[in-house]
């Protein structure tokens, strides 16, 4: 119908549609923006405000200033434990997950037969529901009738060594590794697949050149593979760290945060505060502490990456 838009104007084509695009654009944005405003932007501000109150939803909210924060950071011993637990999970899960993922990806990238089947199997836990996974691991770790404990007993009796299975989920020292194992089982397939994609982008000439120079397999890994996938390593490090900060379902289902709060995580604590103890303000304060931690850690990693992440074509300095 608008065949009359003949080309007599010197303006570039796209400028001519500008006036009506203004309102059109807002219409296109409206559904997303309304949701964004109501369920993201306003709640962010509300949560900050809420963290300055004590509110059980039953009685009127009471303004307490920064008390929620100061108590968390000074006198709340459980929260201190929660932080220690969270850091434990970060320093174990993140490196192990990256190492296993890279190892598997490098192995699968050798032109191996059966790549599809291996990928199918290793990636399978990624798509499973964490509740079911945590349930079966709880049963798996059971000291008396679990298959893991049975294997250890067998090993002990066969070899005559005095090894006994730990009481994984009832022993504060073992419950954390149990959560780590569950998380590794669940997520390693993801890092593997991402690394696999990165490895496939490494030019083979680099390996050929290294071979010509007489580099051993390990040297080729050290000086070709590792630097070439370092942007991926950085990316995975950041998102796995954020994921480890937000650990919840694993602990909620498998250990209920116990024993003796050994697997209580930050998000679990938010859940407890808000939905078990009805302390909305305190819960919001914990959530903000979580956010600040994630923010600082991501910032530090972004700073540090310049020292070790190798960008092709010298992009980043």
């Amino acid at each position: 119908m608008t065949a009359s838009t003949s080309s007599h104007s010197p303006l570039p084509r796209w400028r001519r549609y500008q006036p009506d695009q203004q309102w059109e654009a807002y219409l296109f944005l409206l559904p997303s923006f309304a949701g964004f405003l109501i369920f993201v932007a306003i709640p962010v501000v509300a949560s900050l405000a809420l963290s300055l109150f004590e509110w059980s939803l039953l009685s009127p909210p009471e303004f307490v200033g920064f008390k929620n924060y100061t108590q968390l950071l000074s006198s709340d011993l459980v929260f201190r434990k929660v932080l220690v637990n969270t850091f434990y999970f970060i320093v174990t899960i993140v490196p192990l997950q990256l190492a296993f993922g890279l190892l598997l990806a490098v192995a699968l990238n050798q032109g191996m037969r059966g790549l599809e089947i291996y990928r199918l199997i290793y990636f399978m836990p990624v798509v499973t529901t964490i509740v079911a996974a945590a349930l079966v691991f709880q049963w798996f770790f059971n000291r008396d009738f679990g298959i893991l404990a049975a294997a250890v007993w067998e090993l002990g009796s066969k070899t005559g060594l005095p090894i006994r299975p730990p009481d994984w989920l009832n022993d504060p020292d073992w419950a954390k590794p149990a959560v780590v194992i569950l998380t590794l089982w669940k997520n390693t397939g993801f890092t593997m697949v991402i690394y696999l994609a990165a490895l496939q982008g490494v030019p083979t000439e680099l390996y050929d050149a290294a071979k010509v120079d007489g580099a051993s397999a390990w040297q080729r890994f050290r000086s070709v593979t590792f630097p070439m996938v370092s942007p991926t390593t950085f990316f995975l490090m950041v998102i796995q760290m954020i994921g480890a900060f937000q650990l919840f379902s694993e602990a909620f289902v498998m250990t209920q945060g116990g024993p003796a709060n050994a697997t209580l995580t930050i998000v679990y604590y938010i859940y407890q505060m808000a939905f078990e103890f009805q302390r909305m303000g305190r819960g919001a304060a914990v959530a903000w502490v979580l956010f600040i931690f994630i923010f600082i850690f991501t910032l530090v990693q972004t700073r540090l990456q310049r020292r070790w992440v190798h960008y092709e074509a010298g992009g980043e300095s």
Binding site: G111, K158, T204
Partner: peptide, 26 residues
């Protein structure tokens, strides 16, 4: 069955550190 399955991180055996993205099996 049970004896082979005691170590979930079996993939960490040094044998799997076969670096390089060699396109063809060598």
């Amino acid at each position: 069955m049970t004896t082979t399955t005691t170590t979930p991180p079996t993939t960490s055996t040094p044998a799997s550190i076969r670096p390089g993205a060699a396109p063809r099996p060598t």
